[in-house]
Amino acid sequence: MRVKLEMYGPFQRFNKDGQLRAELDLEDNLTVRALLMNLGVDIDEPWNAALNGKLADPADKLSDGSLLIVFPPIEGG
């Protein structure tokens, strides 16, 4: 399956070629958590993800054409 991935802030360097936005070919049924681990992300660091325009759970499964956005949680300001 082909997935679009946007990674912000401290997570960008783990995206393909360190890009902000990339497209990745992945095995089917990969979860959000598994993808991040495969990319070498320190998943202990607080992160949020939006999968196809909704707040994602780490166990959510990606599918062909998915858009995943990963970023640090927001508070204050």
Partner: peptide, 19 residues
Amino acid sequence: ARFHDLGTGADMVGGNAIG
């Protein structure tokens, strides 16, 4: 580190994506 680099408002794209 994020506040150091950008201050507040660094992750509005993500914030928009999750509502």
